[in-house]
Amino acid sequence: MGFLDIKQATKSYGAVKVLHETDISVEEGEFLVLVGPSGCGKSTLLNMIAGLEDVTSGDIAIKGRSMLGVKPADRNIAMVFQSYALYPNMTVRGNISFGMEMHGLAKPEREKKIEAVAELLQITQLLDRKPGQLSGGQRQRVAMGRALTRDPDVFLFDEPLSNLDAKLRVDMRTEIKKLHHKLGTTIVYVTHDQIEALTLSTRIAVMYGGHVQQLGTPKEVYDNPANMFVAGFMGSPSMNLFPAKVAQANGAPAAEVTLRNGETALLPFAGGSMAGHDGRDIILGIRPEAITDRDGADRNSNAVHMIEATVELTEPAGSDTFVVTHMGGRDITGRFRADVQVEAGDRFPFAINMEKAVVFDPETEARVA
């Protein structure tokens, strides 16, 4: 039994089921991120934990106690919203204090908590300002400060950074991660941003179509995606997914791929995987960082194979250069070193690390190797 247990939880609106049977057990101190595209059911699940939505069937329990029929105010949870939800006519001090006043906490204790969270979040100098005088990042810190004074069992974050600009999002991600390390609190965090999910979480639940597609650590989800949706959704740029066929290369199974000019190339599978599947149509998945220039390839891998292919496009990105070629009828992106001299139209040797390749069934889209 976990600290927070979601057991076969579903949510339906009439005949429409928006969240299918969901099982997730969250340990105390974990940082679970629910990630997926709009409409996948992640915010619905968060609202069910908060008590803002009823559970149609199944159960949600916190510290072994079922939350069915328990009002949001009685769940000892704290929620941080996308919209900050601050009172514009109150100062920062008033906003942070308000919830404690409603719970009847004595003023000396309130002041002690306000000072503590203000110092923790570095907003002491803002306590006498009103929300209208604050930046987006400062408002989000105030919203977090209000939640922190509750000392809840579980923190719930509903896309808290989506209203911030790109640089501020990165800064606030760092602050939230520091906060989690310092306090060891249990957090359930909703986002559609997979980079946010990978950088913040101890575990990720990737959601799509009302189902949890995969639940695991960031490394498990990134390196070993359960299906093509997870493979394509997690990572930026996303995993390259392209058709291939299982063939033989020097008596060992290999992926046969078609290049832009109609030529075919063989990429032997690492460790003899896919043996006995000759002639099978597959979808090959390879991350951009496993497709690079010769000198940038992993020197510790024994499964790096070279393919000479035509460069379609180059995209300088500061520390890297993304290089696009064509395989299996799809554009394929490789991550090259920034100083590699390569131009569109060049015939160039691509180093492909097949230790990092994964294989999917084109019919079911499930992973097979």
Rank of each mutant, 00 (worst) to 15 (best):
A9W: 05
G29I: 12
G29S: 10
F31P: 06
F31G: 04
V33G: 01
V33E: 02
P37E: 06
C40E: 06
L45H: 04
L45I: 03
N47F: 01
N47I: 00
M48C: 10
A50F: 00
G51A: 02
G51Y: 06
L52N: 14
K71D: 13
M79L: 08
F81P: 05
Y87E: 09
N89L: 15
M90G: 13
R93E: 14
L105Q: 13
K130H: 10
Q138Y: 08
R139Q: 11
Q140P: 05
R141W: 03
A147H: 02
L148W: 01
R150F: 14
P152L: 10
D153F: 06
P160F: 04
D165W: 12
R169K: 10
R169P: 01
T174N: 01
I176S: 00
K177N: 09
T185L: 05
T186E: 02
V190H: 02
D193H: 00
L200N: 03
G209F: 11
Q214V: 05
G216P: 01
P218K: 06
E220P: 06
V221N: 10
P225F: 07
A226E: 11
M228C: 15
P237L: 12
M239L: 11
M239W: 06
L241A: 06
A244I: 15
Q248C: 10
G262M: 08
E263W: 00
A265M: 10
G272F: 11
M274E: 14
G276R: 08
L284I: 04
I286K: 00
T292N: 05
N300C: 04
S301D: 09
N302W: 01
T310C: 15
L313N: 05
V323F: 09
V324H: 09
R330Q: 14
I332L: 08
T333E: 02
D339L: 04
D346G: 14
N353G: 07
M354F: 11
V358M: 15
F360V: 05
D361A: 00
R367G: 07
